[in-house]
Design a protein around this nucleic acid. Structure first.
Lengths: 138, 138
DNA sequence: ATTAGTGTTATAGTTAGATAGTACACTAGA
DNA sequence: TCTAGTGTACTATCTAACTATAACACTAAT
């Protein structure tokens, strides 16, 4: 694992979000064991205390469960995971739309821009053999 | 003026972005005078040193120009402003799309979600008498 | 009991961001 | 010249985040 850190945001928050994304996207399944404090610390070259804080916060959010002496595991409550997914998606969405509006873009502009960005990516995908012919016309 | 501060991001960066958004959106025009260090500090209840740092960074980015003893002014180079707008919009867009993809959403999902969010807002606007009949149907 | 791997706690030190307070330098205008 | 308003600079202090290091507690396996 490796993360591109943004100096302007606390590391423990960035690692938290990284793990939450892995869970929400299904890369980490409910009940899966997550890395130990020391293991992840060594992996990311981060101090174990910082990882410990990360995990404590994740536990406070009920995203992971701790079995002392054994390790930490992704929560088995799928409803909790869905809730987190909705929350994270909602935050991204609001941040984007509100932000674009503040920059002076109109709602219709925003839709168009997203369509175009996605179309550009689909173009890249097609070259890699992605079976989707649509181009999301403007 | 008032800003909702996010504790996880340095204040000086948040104020920077706030001002850049005002410029990019046209709320502050090229050549306009921006508040003085002490004025903005009092207004936002922030230490003058922090505002000074904010302004220094804005100047480093050539967003504002300083006339010592007189005050600070929005740059007159509209091309610079357009560049900043594109940069900020591009960042928002990337953050959003990349973030949604990491959460497990497909490109087509993302477009749909944005369309729906925008449609919901248009609905609100109509009740406030906004003269735009479109509903951005899905 | 011992060992290895896990979570947990604690102390000390560094750094960046923010604050508080003071002082100095420049400009326009009375 | 004097004053008010501006930018600028400096020192000191505080706090959160992070690091370095060490120690302790729990669990499973031997």
């Amino acid at each position: 694992m490796s993360i591109e850190f943004d100096n302007n945001l606390p590391i423990y928050l960035q690692i938290m979000n990284h793990i939450k994304r892995q869970i929400v996207s299904g890369l980490l399944q409910p009940g899966d064991k997550i890395p130990s404090v020391r293991e992840l610390a060594a992996d990311l070259q981060i101090n174990p205390n910082t990882i410990q804080r990360t995990f404590q916060e994740l536990e406070r959010e009920e995203v992971v469960e701790t079995k002392r002496g054994l390790g930490r595991y992704v929560t088995s409550e799928e409803s909790k995971i869905m809730a987190i997914k909705k929350e994270m998606a909602g935050e991204l969405l609001h941040q984007f739309i509100h932000g674009m509006q503040e920059l002076g873009f109109k709602n219709q502009d925003i839709v168009t821009i997203v369509k175009e960005a996605v179309a550009a990516e689909s173009g890249k995908d097609r070259k890699e053999g992605h079976p989707d012919g649509r181009t999301s016309e403007g």
